[in-house]
């Protein structure tokens, strides 16, 4: 892009917009550090008069934060592994193999993206129940091993951009298609796989409906649903609810900060133009 003539103007504008977008998060953090009396007396004050970090201790001790966190991580890691494995395999099959009926099946895959989850919710529940997965994190993890249309679509676009020569060279060396996939395609696709991994991590972290429908034992609740318990228990204590919200968001924000350069640069850089 050509150099911006008025960098100061651009900078100020970005600063304003970003500031506006960050305000709510600031309110969340600051509110979580106030005392209830202060919130009551003066809800509009920005900074707390007295910084009350003990709110956090209270949240962590009254709700089994670390138990929920563990469940969330099991869920996140399990479903990331599932999504990356299954979606990359399927996407390669759609991108780099020639076989009869491929495009028709791919069209079908795209069509499933249009299906509202509500339309399949009830029979799906019954099916997973029959498979003995009710009240188990497996009900939320196992389906990710069976692919997800959106991720398959993203990865396919990426695989399409790999140079054919590289793959052919490997094939001439006597590699099977699976070998080509594992040894050539996968190593070259790390950024795209990482994008899918992060998307799925965030999605699993946030999943509310899944636990709502499938989990009944609080010892298996992930954070996203455990926070609901905090809200109903503490509905009268904003400062604690906000502290819970911060604790709930913090790990994912940290993870994002660590990976953001990579992520923001490479997301769907194969792009959506298919």
């Amino acid at each position: 892009m050509r150099r911006v003539k008025t960098p100061r103007f651009a900078f100020l504008m970005l600063l304003t917009v970003t500031g506006l977008f960050s305000l709510p998060m600031g309110v969340m953090v600051l509110t979580s550090l106030k005392s209830p009396a202060e919130l009551d007396a003066n809800p509009h004050a920005w900074l707390p008069d007295r910084w009350q970090a003990s709110n956090y201790r209270e949240v962590v001790t009254t709700m089994p934060y670390f138990l929920y966190l563990r469940n969330t991580l099991v869920l996140c890691v399990g479903s990331v592994v599932g999504s990356v494995l299954s979606c990359s395999l399927v996407a390669y099959g759609f991108a780099r193999l020639r076989w009869r009926g491929r495009d028709r099946w791919f069209g079908l895959l795209i069509a499933t993206m249009l299906l509202p989850w509500q339309a399949t919710m009830i029979p799906r529940f019954l099916l997973l129940r029959e498979l003995g997965m009710y009240n188990s994190l497996a009900a939320l993890i196992v389906p990710t091993f069976l692919g997800d249309a959106f991720y398959i679509f993203l990865l396919r676009q990426f695989f399409l951009s790999l140079p054919e020569d590289l793959l052919d060279a490997a094939r001439l060396d006597g590699c099977s298609e699976l070998g080509v996939f594992v040894r050539i395609a996968i190593p070259l696709s790390k950024p795209a796989l990482a994008t899918v991994a992060l998307f799925q991590f965030v999605a699993a972290w946030n999943d509310f409906n899944g636990p709502l429908l499938y989990l009944s034992d609080p010892e298996k609740f992930p954070l996203a649903y455990g926070l609901e318990r905090l809200v109903s228990a503490y509905s009268t204590q904003t400062h604690l609810v906000m502290a819970g919200a911060v604790l709930f968001s913090l790990p994912i924000v940290l993870l994002f900060l660590l990976t953001q350069r990579m992520f923001l640069r490479n997301t769907v850089s194969g792009s959506i133009k298919g």
Binding site: M1, F11, L14, L15, V17, N206, S249, I252, Q260, L264
Partner: peptide, 23 residues
């Protein structure tokens, strides 16, 4: 736009969509 602090701006503007829906 190629301005100073671009990565920070990108992060801050993206952050809200990573926050948990319930929060």
């Amino acid at each position: 736009w190629p301005v100073r602090g671009q990565p920070l701006f990108r992060t801050l503007l993206y952050l809200p969509s990573v926050l948990p829906i319930l929060a």
